[in-house]
Design a protein around this nucleic acid. Structure first.
Lengths: 215, 215
DNA sequence: CGGTAAGCTGACGGCATGACAGGACAAGTT
DNA sequence: AACTTGTCCTGTCATGCCGTCAGCTTACCG
């Protein structure tokens, strides 16, 4: 099914090898969250994992390759984000609740993976297709069901039909991603972290339904 | 007034020196837009500028230092973004126009400086205060006047007072920044680049005024 | 024309990269 | 216990970039 884990030179990795490999990934992850991406060196990761640079190169072609690995793992995890929107109702009083839970869940996910997402975001912005794809996987977990919700509301005549559902959903997800990545910016605008959710949620509701949230 | 340009070892740069310095900055800028940030090396920049690495280190402490220089230049330029919002009306038919011009102007600015902004965004996300400050300067050029506009509308009773004007303005600017940086994502959602403006503008209008744009 | 400061680079030690061959190790076989 | 086999790790090496310095060249000025 899933091809076995292999070393760069084609050998199949056994139990011990996979452990080392995993430890390297863990250390890299740790490294990414403590130092600037540009300064992450193979030798530091190897040292932290109690092994040598040569070992690192047995399992990964370079730092980027290992980062991609971590990112793909995270992308799988992003599947759980779907639940935040799929099957939820935007009608009546439950609408604002749906919106709040979406904002909350999304911010939590981003915060949990912020270091790796930073690198993914950069890679995607730089035009790297592999990183772009991973970023889309994460965003789509929310954007796709969100676009569906908008479509449904439009069909029922409860939302502005002149807007492209995909564009609206995409914009809202972009907003959430940006807000999550740069929470500090909001702090400097005088918006406390705990006020982020109550302020973003109405905007999401507004975007999806096109009308003010009911009190 | 503005302290003269100085080399790393304290000498004042003369005409010729400033030219070399500028050429290095130009080449670095070029480099940033063609290769991943992580792979930009001093030696490549120097080679492109027809000089030696040692010369680079005369004018800049490292790559990051030079990038900061470029970014600060751009931040000054961002002052023009203020005109997009300051003194503009959100009432009646002019509201949607204001919104469209804002989206258009902002996207254009971002596109023009996308390479350097990518790095600034990364630096800010990584917690580097210098990059964070520069990013805030750019965003504030739009966010500050936008927050003022929201405040005014709230005072006139034309907008929802339960929302924090700073939060709303910040969120909208974040949205624009994210959309600008990841236009490709929208393409992959089936939203063409030329459809970006007509789809983002109503959202901005909606966020600022809290109501649907008039036809 | 000589003095002074600016401007540039060759050269160097130091460190990261990336490849390889060979030794250590675990587990099963005879 | 000796042997075999395949996995796993590392010492070592060539290469290339980093960042610094001494020293050479160039420009300007009295």
């Amino acid at each position: 099914m899933t091809g076995q884990v292999r070393t760069v030179d084609g050998r199949v990795a056994g139990r011990r090898g996979q452990e080392t490999r995993q430890k390297l990934l863990d250390c890299l992850r740790e490294m990414l969250s403590t130092s600037p991406y540009r300064d992450v060196k193979v030798i530091d990761v190897a040292r932290m994992a109690g092994t040598s640079p040569a070992t690192f190169y047995q399992y990964f072609p370079d730092v980027e390759g290992a980062v991609l690995e971590i990112a793909e793992e995270m992308a799988k995890d992003a599947d759980t984000l779907k639940e935040l929107v799929a099957g939820k109702s935007w009608a009546g009083k439950s609408g604002p609740t749906t919106s709040e839970e979406l904002v909350d869940g999304f911010l939590a996910f981003w915060r949990k993976n912020d270091a790796i997402l930073r690198v993914v975001t950069l890679g995607a912005a730089e035009g790297d297709k592999r990183f772009f794809k991973i970023r889309m996987t994460v965003l789509n977990a929310v954007a796709k069901p969100l676009a569906e919700a908008v479509k449904e509301l439009q069909a029922k005549g409860q939302a502005d039909k002149s807007l492209d559902p995909n564009a609206v959903a995409g914009a809202l997800v972009s907003l959430l991603a940006s807000a999550a990545e740069h929470q500090k910016a909001f702090t400097s605008w005088g918006v406390k972290v705990k006020d982020l959710k109550p302020n973003l949620a109405p905007l999401v509701y507004l975007g999806v339904t096109g009308k003010k949230p009911p009190k």
